[in-house]
Simulated assay, not measured.
Amino acid sequence: MSTDTPNTGQDAPVYQHVLRVADLSTSAETSFELIPTAAECKAIADDLGLPALRKVRFKGTLVARGKRDWQLKAQLGATVVQDCVVTLDPVTTRIEEPVSRRWVRDLPELEAGDEIEMPDDETLEQLGPEIDLGEVLTESLALALPLFPRVDGAELDQRNFAAPGVAPMSDEDARPFAGLSALRDQLAGKSDSDDDGK
């Protein structure tokens, strides 16, 4: 029932495992287990900006909900390598993440001028003729990645690095209104000098 479709379009997912909805059984659950090859893991890693990705496994079931909707429940496991945000050294993280998705035929679409209240359930998606489990895997992995990976003992402090000849930016410089504050002080100083000259 499944087909692995190559990435032929520019916007196509780098890893695909497509199920045709018309081929799915509505009376029994459809089990799946995806284990990308080393080459496929590299393509996913490149797409997500990861130095390395290994030991990926995506296992679960698809179940019909009524006559028109489908629900996915799965477990995503992966070992990812990222750059430490402090030292740029490699950081290896094991991810174990439950994944839930629902595809519905009658998902309301918000058009210009409409005031349709969209559902709060972020797992809801519009059902089309196909369900791409590979795309679900990649999206779920991207959402599960640590935002600020750090090697053990690495701490952010006020020491900053910059290219030769460029002054490093301090924590104070990075504050949102640091530039506005400096401009305000500069204008205030100019105003005082103008008043003195009158």
Rank of each mutant, 00 (worst) to 15 (best):
88 L>E: 02
149 P>N: 10
165 G>A: 05
13 P>C: 10
123 T>C: 03
163 A>F: 01
165 G>I: 05
61 T>K: 09
37 T>I: 07
9 G>V: 15
34 L>M: 03
129 P>T: 12
69 D>R: 04
87 T>N: 08
61 T>D: 09
175 R>E: 06
175 R>K: 14
177 F>V: 12
21 V>S: 05
168 P>M: 00
190 K>T: 05
77 G>F: 09
132 D>E: 01
109 E>Y: 09
93 T>D: 09
169 M>K: 14
84 C>N: 00
120 D>P: 04
103 W>E: 01
40 E>N: 07
136 V>A: 03
155 E>P: 04
134 G>Q: 00
1 M>R: 13
93 T>W: 11
42 K>H: 11
189 G>P: 04
185 D>S: 14
81 V>W: 03
152 D>Y: 02
159 R>Y: 01
19 L>F: 12
98 P>V: 01
43 A>H: 09
128 G>Q: 03
192 D>K: 14
109 E>G: 10
179 G>T: 01
187 L>V: 10
126 Q>T: 15
166 V>C: 06
122 E>K: 03
174 A>I: 15
80 V>N: 02
188 A>I: 12
97 E>N: 10
184 R>F: 00
1 M>Y: 12
42 K>D: 11
45 A>D: 07
123 T>L: 08
146 P>Y: 06
74 A>Q: 04
110 L>G: 10
18 V>I: 13
188 A>S: 13
41 C>K: 02
66 G>F: 10
138 T>E: 01
71 Q>W: 07
58 F>R: 00
169 M>H: 00
134 G>L: 10
189 G>M: 12
19 L>D: 06
46 D>K: 09
109 E>L: 11
27 S>E: 13
72 L>R: 10
156 L>M: 13
13 P>E: 05
93 T>H: 01
190 K>Q: 08
88 L>S: 02
85 V>C: 00
131 I>H: 08
168 P>K: 03
27 S>F: 02
192 D>Y: 06
49 G>L: 11
21 V>C: 09
178 A>H: 01
40 E>K: 11
136 V>F: 08
60 G>M: 11
93 T>K: 07
71 Q>I: 12
42 K>V: 12
122 E>F: 09
80 V>W: 03
